[in-house]
Measured scan of single mutants.
Amino acid sequence: MAAAAAAGAGPEMVRGQVFDVGPRYTNLSYIGEGAYGMVCSAYDNVNKVRVAIKKISPFEHQTYCQRTLREIKILLRFRHENIIGINDIIRAPTIEQMKDVYIVQDLMETDLYKLLKTQHLSNDHICYFLYQILRGLKYIHSANVLHRDLKPSNLLLNTTCDLKICDFGLARVADPDHDHTGFLTEYVATRWYRAPEIMLNSKGYTKSIDIWSVGCILAEMLSNRPIFPGKHYLDQLNHILGILGSPSQEDLNCIINLKARNYLLSLPHKNKVPWNRLFPNADSKALDLLDKMLTFNPHKRIEVEQALAHPYLEQYYDPSDEPIAEAPFKFDMELDDLPKEKLKELIFEETARFQPGYRS
């Protein structure tokens, strides 16, 4: 834990890192770190609560700039109880001085990944967590956004079992017609939660990839272990087919990539493993919904509104309290091709509203 900075004593240090967030945020305490930044909790002297502050230093890398800009653009436009918001952003007053960006968010005690390492969940908890994931996802999908990296560590939890989806750095506007060349190379989302079509096709992607990830998360809540822990690309596919069985001819016809289709045709026939054999203690309604989410063919996979209306979630289902976005989200430009200098300018502009004396 960093010592509390005395008023006016300059930035606090946390594990050798400068955290320049005073005077409003003090009493910093280390939480963890990701690929390009550290997260601390801090005391907000204005709202009198502890908050989470993520320090991001992305400006050396085009990919990190892209992810940072995506996350900020999306989260500043989203407003939903099951999606983490941005409360404040701290950065230098000029673009030349801006080396880091500090993002202030609600402090959540833990995440689903940490929880599943230590606790076996009751059916009631599984049901409530799944409902909140789908409630947040309904809003995301209504904005025409794909999260693309749903996994237990991106689901934040607090002691009252509130759940918030975080990390929109890989999110995209849904565009089933656009052929994202190089899709697989830039697709760094965790393999275990990846839909089979991501490994088999490169053309376009749809909201059904997020539903697949939610199915993987439900299976993990039922058993405290990942359902498809593939060691590499082909191993991942083999794990999936080992449980779902061989795809039907109709399902194979959806695979545009001939090499991928021929690979699947070359494999020995596998039978589907019954879900109640894998999860003998699970609620039968939970397994019915799991089956509809972990469907090989993305066109037959359940959609988020149908999933919310499934009998497993009937005690929570309330369409009048499951809000959607006001308007579909649009990125003005494809960020993939922009140089990091341009992305830095866009991050600077996007964060201006939090600067003292800002006038829109």
Results as ranks from 00 to 15, higher is better:
L116D: 04
I243N: 12
S153E: 07
P58A: 15
E250I: 02
A352C: 07
L28S: 05
A143P: 07
L338F: 00
R194A: 07
G32E: 12
I74M: 02
T185G: 03
H61A: 08
M13K: 15
N27H: 13
L258W: 11
T68F: 15
A2K: 00
F129L: 14
L222V: 04
N82E: 09
A6P: 05
L237A: 06
I53E: 08
E334T: 00
S29I: 14
D235W: 05
S320M: 11
Y113I: 07
I90G: 02
I56E: 13
E81R: 04
T160N: 05
I133C: 03
N257M: 07
E345Q: 07
G10S: 09
N297Q: 08
D291V: 14
Q66P: 13
N123G: 13
D124F: 04
N281K: 12
L290I: 01
K117C: 13
Q62R: 14
E305Q: 03
N201W: 10
G22L: 06
E12I: 07
V101E: 15
D321V: 14
P323D: 08
N123Y: 15
L267F: 01
S29Q: 10
Q249F: 05
A92K: 02
G8Y: 08
N47T: 14
P328L: 11
I74F: 15
M199G: 01
L28R: 07
F183R: 06
T110I: 10
L150C: 04
V51H: 14
D44Q: 10
N144Y: 15
F129M: 06
H299N: 15
Q132V: 03
V46R: 08
A174H: 11
S142Y: 01
V21D: 02
H120K: 09
H269Y: 10
Y131H: 01
S153P: 03
A2D: 11
V14L: 12
P298W: 03
S246N: 11
V145Y: 03
Y317C: 14
F183Y: 15
S284N: 05
V173A: 12
N47F: 13
G215H: 08
S320A: 05
K292P: 07
P196M: 02
P311E: 09
K55E: 14
R277F: 08
R148G: 09
V304N: 09
R79E: 06
H125L: 14
G169V: 14
I347H: 15
Y30H: 05
N144T: 13
R225I: 06
F59R: 15
G37W: 11
I255T: 06
I324R: 05
E322N: 00
E305F: 10
P298E: 10
N297E: 03
L112A: 08
L252F: 03
L218W: 09
F183C: 11
K55T: 08
I56R: 13
K300R: 12
G16W: 00
L278D: 05
L170G: 04
D283P: 05
T206R: 06
D318I: 08
Q119R: 04
V214M: 10
Y128D: 02
L107T: 06
E349V: 13
I243G: 11
D179Y: 15
Q236C: 06
T159E: 09
Q306L: 14
D288Y: 14
A143L: 13
K285E: 12
I243D: 02
A171Q: 00
A9S: 12
G32P: 15
G34F: 00
L234E: 04
K114Y: 11
Y316P: 01
N45F: 11
M108S: 03
G34T: 01
G136A: 02
A143K: 05
F329A: 04
A174P: 05
L112P: 05
D20E: 15
V145W: 06
P226V: 05
V39R: 03
A282G: 04
V39N: 10
A42L: 08
L234I: 07
R261L: 15
E96I: 03
H310T: 02
G245L: 10
Q97L: 15
K330F: 06
C166D: 04
L130P: 09
S284Y: 03
P247D: 06
L343E: 07
R353G: 09
S41K: 07
D283W: 00
S57C: 11
F331Y: 15
V173T: 09
K164A: 05
D337I: 10
K207P: 09
K48L: 14
I198W: 10
S208E: 03
R353I: 14
G204N: 07
M98T: 00
E60R: 14
D167P: 03
D210V: 14
